[in-house]
Write a protein that binds this DNA or RNA. Structure first.
Ligand SMILES: [Mn+2]
Ligand SMILES: [Mn+2]
Ligand SMILES: [Zn+2]
Ligand SMILES: [Zn+2]
Lengths: 133, 133
DNA sequence: TGGATTATTAGAATGATTCTAAACTACAAA
DNA sequence: TTTGTAGTTTAGAATCATTCTAATAATCCA
């Protein structure tokens, strides 16, 4: 059984050709940052036909099941991240590309006091890059 | 001359009633995080009529002139921040509200190596909050 | 194998933002 | 003051990412 389909079985989703294609893309690259548009473009280039709605349905479903994580980078589009570790990102705006920053590449010597009655839900750190002059 | 209009004169924009209203709102609260929709709702409540296009035109123009800063929080909408200091944010998703974190409330004991050929453009830190239990 | 459940899809709907082009206003030169 | 011009506002259309709808198709398992 395909690795992709083992994953689908584990999370109780039927192994359709569309899902398998999406998951195989994710597995192949191991650590992926992808958007719906980038993914459909990639698949269409490989002559694999799929609708945009299916891409969204599945990326969101995989995020719900904890296989992917959703990232807000800028207001343009939703990113899906296959790296499930705690980590942060560089954003290369010229290439429109995210680069992982391992959790232990950043450490804090001082962290802010959380407002009372609240607890931390998630920390999002994005370091935007530009070209050296 | 109104404080708002002094600002407009300094940045070479004509003091229209719409602009004056927008800037007065920003000044009154001193440190503001606002979105276009929140602002138009506020102004309409005060019986001040203005079009959404004008809100966007002006918030963007003020951002261009360095009077406001644009913030990406999530993909829903653009935020405009009147706090020009280097700082970070808590995001209270229940209230849909941003809270400033002063630059010196966070310090780093380790910072990641910037990829070669690139330099840091901006650092964006958002700590999303949820209610305790 | 049949029927229920789940999935895919095209196209419509939604929401934020920008664009267009026409009407209006501020400003300053005469 | 008047008036021409550049700058501004506006309604509504356009755009783009995303979600929804409801019809069709595939998967599953009794
Ligand atoms: Mn953006
Ligand atoms: Mn969002
Ligand atoms: Zn990542
Ligand atoms: Zn702020």
């Amino acid at each position: 059984m395909l690795e992709a389909n083992k994953i689908l079985k584990k999370i109780n989703l039927r192994p359709t050709t569309q899902r398998t294609a999406i998951i195989e893309y994710i597995l192949q690259k191991h650590k992926v940052h992808i958007t719906a548009t980038k993914l459909i473009t990639h698949l269409k280039k490989k002559k694999f036909n799929i609708s945009l709605a299916t891409i969204y349905n599945n990326l969101n479903e995989l995020a719900d099941k904890g296989i992917l994580r959703k990232l807000h980078v800028n207001n343009d589009k939703m990113w899906f991240d296959s790296n499930l570790q705690d980590h942060y990102h560089f954003y290369d705006s010229e290439k429109d590309e995210l680069i992982d920053i391992d959790k232990n590449e950043i450490s804090f010597s001082k962290i802010p006091k959380i407002p009372r009655g609240k607890i931390k839900d998630s920390i999002n750190i994005i370091i935007s890059l530009k070209s050296k002059n």
